[in-house]
Amino acid sequence: MKAYWIAHVDVTDPQQYLQYTQRAPAAFQAFGGRFLARGGRSEAVEGRDTPQRSVVIEFDSYEQALACYHSDQYQQACSHRQGVARAEVIIVEGVEG
């Protein structure tokens, strides 16, 4: 069953954040991740204010999605995001059918 990363990110230093966005996609690719949404137009219609960036990444399984997040490759990329962005990342299993 597929799984998805759903991330909401507010960036405080776009120049430094590039260090993250240049490194993280290699980790996603290594675990079969595919971008479904990546920073396009968005509008909060309920809940908190619209984040600067919303991202949805599809994986073939929940286990792959978790393994990607916990991998050394992704965590190294993620270290470049620390202090320059506030991120909320949720991994959710899809539905059958």
Rank of each mutant, 00 (worst) to 15 (best):
I90K: 14
Y17H: 13
V55L: 15
Q52I: 12
E58P: 06
Q76H: 12
S71R: 03
V9M: 08
H8Q: 14
S61H: 06
R81D: 00
Q15S: 12
V45P: 02
E93G: 12
R81I: 00
G83A: 05
V92R: 10
S71L: 10
E88N: 14
E63Y: 12
Q19M: 13
D60A: 15
T21H: 03
P25C: 03
A65F: 13
A27Q: 11
R38W: 14
V11I: 14
A27G: 10
Y74G: 00
E88G: 05
I57Y: 00
Y69T: 01
S54L: 15
Q73H: 08
W5R: 02
R34I: 12
V55K: 12
Q16P: 01
V55P: 09
H70K: 08
Q82T: 03
V55T: 10
Y20E: 09
T12E: 11
V89N: 11
F35A: 09
V9D: 03
D72M: 08
G39Q: 06
R86C: 04
G83C: 06
R38G: 08
S42N: 06
R81H: 05
A87I: 03
T12Q: 10
A77T: 00
Y74E: 01
V95E: 15
R34H: 11
R41L: 14
V89F: 09
A27R: 06
V92T: 14
P14I: 03
S61M: 10
Q76K: 14
A65G: 12
Q73S: 13
S61K: 09
F28K: 01
D72Y: 11
R34D: 13
T21P: 04
A27D: 10
G40F: 05
D60N: 15
D49G: 10
A7T: 05
Q29C: 04
A30Y: 04
Y20N: 08
